[in-house]
Design a protein around this nucleic acid. Structure first.
Lengths: 145, 145
DNA sequence: CGGTGTCGTAACTGAAATAGTTACATCGCC
DNA sequence: GGCGATGTAACTATTTCAGTTACGACACCG
């Protein structure tokens, strides 16, 4: 299983919402999205729940219920999505505390955290440069450019 | 469990080897390394096996057997280590193929792969700028500086 | 005011990966 | 041949992910 597909699912959801919004339909159901992603509607609702907490979408109740984008597609970057759905850091430190009697074991964790922080920042920069609108264009065109 | 700690373990291993090499001991055993990392020697041997395939260390047999660095600590970057131990991409695509009858489902995967490739490249750049010697200095000094 | 359709979430499952552990064959020096 | 370490296979416990079922909550509409 290794890496999870939460970012992929969330970006797919938002890109699909942006597409159908462009066609005039701005409230959609988790069932409709699940049909495009090819998964269970509950998986989609879980993803949408995280996007809602991040303020990217809202849920509507009652008749004609569903979900709606709260920002334009070019105002949502993949960094926004990444932050909304990804909780764990990119690289884990030691599972068990290393040997504190060893100079390496005693001091390596802050050193690693600094390097890992730099890698996270690099990922943020890369994802922050692409919007849902970019992904939508790339998806329809066969490329992201 | 989420993210794995293979990069952390491998960097710890190499940093420890660099430290004791500076003290004149250049052949060490997996048991000795395991004592610093605080884990089982087999876990260390598995990590060393991947580093050996990458040409970063070698194993010696017979009497006085053990492991030895094949490069100076300032000639091993964390990108070398990352490539040696990490096989999976940073972000997974859809677990099941998305709906090919939907324009998003049909075209989103190449678009995502392009973005994810950019994020991988950013991580490579960040990790490539730090060497085992840097980590050793940072570990002993309390910072990576 | 009750029916309807969707959200929101808990609970469970199967599959997969990590990391820890035991065990043992292999290797090469002494 | 003895010895000490490598190199791996095999097994386990723990955790996570994603899929699924189930059901209460909600708000509109006739």
């Amino acid at each position: 299983m290794a890496a999870n597909s939460r970012l992929t699912v969330a970006v797919h959801v938002l890109t699909w919402m942006a597409l159908v919004k462009g066609r005039g339909r701005d409230v959609v159901t988790s069932d409709q999205i699940a049909d495009s992603v090819n998964t269970n509607p509950v998986v989609i609702r879980r993803s949408l729940g995280e996007l809602r907490k991040a303020g990217l979408v809202e849920a509507l109740h009652g008749a004609g219920a569903g979900w709606r984008l709260l920002r334009e597609a070019d105002a949502i970057t993949l960094l926004d999505v990444y932050r909304a759905v990804e909780t764990e850091p990119l690289f884990a430190l030691h599972r068990a505390e290393p040997n504190q009697k060893c100079p390496i074991g005693a001091g390596i964790r802050p050193a690693l955290e600094e390097v890992y922080g730099g890698a996270e920042a690099a990922v943020h920069g890369a994802l922050g440069g692409t919007s849902i609108a970019d992904v939508l264009r790339g998806t329809l065109a066969g490329r992201t450019g």
